[in-house]
Amino acid sequence: MGLITNFYEATAMVLFGIGFVTLLLQKNLIKKIIGLNIMDSAIFLYLTTTGYITGRSAPIVIDGVVYAGAYVNPLPSALVMTGIVVAVSITAFALALSLKLYEHYGTLDMDKIALMSRGGKG
């Protein structure tokens, strides 16, 4: 069964779906941002899982190289690190923007904000 052997990948895709739909359909800005983070974490889980092979260790060489098959590729972990940095900065920006929106509109509900700005100057 593909789903059982690829349990982590399948979980990652389900999480991506949850995050994506939350980002798309939630009205509350904070919940949207949480959805964004779930979505990004799902991709990180996927990358980490594909980068890990049972029985192999990190490519840290102390007593000389044993043989190439004893190590995993370090690149997926590096990608995840970079991705986390990007996700953090986007989240910070989005939260700062939400604060500003709350100051100007007094709500974090996107539907209400859209209504208010249309009712105002449009």
Partner: peptide, 20 residues
């Protein structure tokens, strides 16, 4: 102002969806 902030959050949310 009110309009640009609303426009920015709309732009940001759709953009991060694309980035994802």
């Amino acid at each position: 102002n009110r309009d640009t902030l609303k426009a920015t959050i709309k732009y940001l949310l759709l953009s991060v969806m694309g980035s994802g």
